[in-house]
């Protein structure tokens, strides 16, 4: 447990000096949120929610999906970079020689990714509220709970598949191809919950999505902790 925090602290400290993961990630996320919100008519965020018409999707419902797609695309940049720093100069071999369990290595990396996601969200969420013009009171504090549940699974999946894609040719291409299909339950859940918040539905009626996302988190953390040694060990 302590080793996990040490390893994560090592990642974050080197990032604090190099500043090569979080700034590009946040900037890319900003560009995406800007591009997505640009497509809505002005004032779409304040517009009343449309009634229950089949096939009609309100701007606010769509906005929740766009927010998560932006976060995901920006997040994957960070996951890939965080994994590839260990490959450069074979730093991973030094880590493997240290008396550290591969599971702790996985947890440490995932914790660092988890922190990057929060950094990303700390910037993107206010900007989203600003650009889209949606009342911030609708999102807070529920969105923090949604982000917490989503970030655990995203960080763990990003760590596992980020490490896996280090050992193939064309790794920048392979990682999203492996990652995106498997995290669909998580992304759909986060989108649905955020849309529910944005349309004033709250989270109470949507608790089953939390169960689903929690199940995903458990599965990916457990498999990641057990399987990480098969990926990084020689």
């Amino acid at each position: 447990m302590r080793k996990m925090f040490l390893l994560a602290a090592k990642d974050l400290r080197s990032e604090a000096r190099a500043k090569e993961i979080a700034p590009p990630m946040v900037l890319f996320g900003l560009i995406l949120v800007f591009l997505f919100t640009l497509n809505f008519p002005p004032g779409a965020g304040q517009a009343p929610v449309p009634g229950p018409v089949v096939g009609a999707v309100g701007s606010r419902e769509l906005a929740g999906a766009f927010l998560w797609v932006s976060l995901l695309f920006a997040g994957i940049l960070g996951f890939g970079r965080n994994a590839s720093t260990e490959r450069e100069g074979n730093r991973i071999e030094g880590l493997l020689l240290a008396p550290v369990d591969p599971a702790a290595l996985f947890a440490g990396k995932a914790l660092a990714n988890f922190c990057y996601l929060w950094t990303l969200e700390a910037v993107l969420l206010p900007v989203f509220v600003l650009f889209f013009g949606v009342p911030a009171g609708l999102l807070l504090p529920g969105i923090l709970l949604v982000a917490l549940v989503a970030n655990v699974g995203l960080a763990a999946a990003g760590t596992l598949f980020g490490a896996a894609s280090q050992y193939v040719r064309a790794r920048e291409l392979v990682m999203p191809l492996l990652l995106f299909p498997v995290i669909i339950p998580l992304v759909l859940g986060a989108e649905r919950l955020t849309s529910s918040l944005l349309t004033g539905g709250g989270l109470g009626s949507q608790s089953r999505w939390f169960i689903l996302m929690g199940a995903f988190d458990l599965a990916i953390v457990a498999i990641g902790a057990v399987a990480f040694e098969f990926i990084v060990n020689e």
Partner: peptide, 26 residues
Amino acid sequence: RGARIAAVIGIFGFVDVPLVHFSMVW
């Protein structure tokens, strides 16, 4: 190593199926 990692992907892919299933049902 490719075979080992593929095995991990194969296992997680299958574990993921019921989760994807429920997300689709809902």
